[in-house]
Design a protein around this nucleic acid. Structure first.
Ligand SMILES: [Mn+2]
Ligand SMILES: [Mn+2]
Ligand SMILES: [Mn+2]
Ligand SMILES: [Mn+2]
Lengths: 217, 217
DNA sequence: ACTAATGTTTAGCTTTGCCTAAAATTATAA
DNA sequence: TTATAATTTTAGGCAAAGCTAAACATTAGT
């Protein structure tokens, strides 16, 4: 697996779960910041390697082999994010770029030991699940903050969007994983909410609320 | 700096200190397991980038800029080796290959924090000095075990050769960094020695003794 | 000093991963 | 149902980093 191949597999993996269908050439090209023609080239190569099924003009679908390889890249990425936050005290909005590089380090033993060193974490610093060695992802029962109604309480367990901008907004509002959020009121017109997060009370827009995952026990 | 460029710089850096002269094309080709023609190509590229001075048929010499870049790669390599041994409990003969990959991760902040996390170590698990951010290497006063005479005592502080085979030999003999070694006798004919290492007494050949660094306070 | 051996560079090819432009296919909409 | 639009693939190239074979320089041996 070359670096480029790993990046393609990972992206297809994410898009497949998001779109719940085959992944189109253009969708991939946009996500990978590259050209459709480059994508086609790589799809043909990955099809040769039995990582995915490629049907001309019809998009691609990962094989079991491809899914496993992709999930392992995701596993490495998320374990390194945990390392960066838990051990090197990086902030959750700073780790993605670095993990993007570290996910390509190739050593089974390294990842095994890293996992143990971190205490076999199940979720990364953004609340995303870490696939196990075999590629299985346990999905937590979590809901979007925007789905809660007045007076419901949730614990923040992750983010849907994890851009630095959004994460920095959450920081400013002192919301992080584990923060208790109480819905004090909800505006039906625009979906905005008045919430209590930790000790503070303030409004959040629908856009904010529908990118935050909470657990309502 | 591409991965290939970093690897060339690092190798030139090591060869320059070893040979104390310009580095020849063939010397580099051998060390890098590549062909002389490939080396020539890269030397011309690195000369364009002012990383080294290249004189046709006369070998290359790093510029200050090149030396600094090379030392930084060495710094990253050795810090990761410390991480692997101290934090992930790898054995000192297992870390080089992995560090060979990790040394290319590109993030100044990452290395700054890693260094702090490791307690600003001065030496790597093989006893080699870790250059500081500016490329300065403090060299320890250390001598080869083979230079000691009968009844001298030294503390193992590093190895000259660090192949897995040699390191595994040392392990079998329970010699590691910090081990106290007492020269009980020395054979002038072949340079072999009877030593006491820790609690055990045994013979070591000249080849063993001239690859182990000790400090004789 | 000249020739042979050794060391180094150049020329020309290969593979990977990307690009643009053009051709082919599929989707949309009048 | 056709023409137009959008999507996708192919053709042809480029840069990086490697290779082999051939040419060129240096060094060494006689
Ligand atoms: Mn990430
Ligand atoms: Mn993440
Ligand atoms: Mn090493
Ligand atoms: Mn080392």
């Amino acid at each position: 697996m070359t670096l480029a191949e790993e990046n393609y597999l990972k992206t297809i993996f994410h898009l497949e779960r998001k779109l719940k269908s085959e992944v189109s050439t253009n969708a991939l090209a946009e996500r990978m910041q590259t050209r459709a023609s480059s994508v086609t080239d790589m799809m043909q190569k990955l099809a040769d390697k039995k990582m995915l099924v490629y049907k001309k003009y019809k998009g691609v679908q990962l094989t079991e082999k491809g899914k496993k390889a992709a999930a392992y890249v995701v596993r490495k990425h998320r374990l390194w994010e945990v390392f960066l936050v838990d051990k090197l005290n990086f902030h959750w909005d700073e780790v993605h770029e670095i993990a993007e590089q570290m996910e390509h380090i190739n050593s089974v033993e390294l990842i095994k030991r890293l996992d143990a060193f971190l205490g076999h974490p199940d979720f990364d610093p953004h609340g995303d699940p870490i696939p196990d060695k075999d590629g299985n992802i346990k999905k937590a029962e979590k809901r979007l903050l925007s789905e809660l109604i007045k007076n419901q309480i949730g614990i923040c367990v992750g983010v849907k969007e994890s851009s630095p901008e959004y994460l920095q907004y959450l920081d400013k509002k002192k919301i992080s994983i584990g923060t208790k959020i109480n819905v004090l009121g909800k505006e039906f017109f625009d979906g905005s909410m008045m919430i209590q997060a930790g000790r503070d009370q303030f409004f959040v827009s629908k856009q904010i609320a529908e990118n935050l995952y909470v657990q309502t026990n």
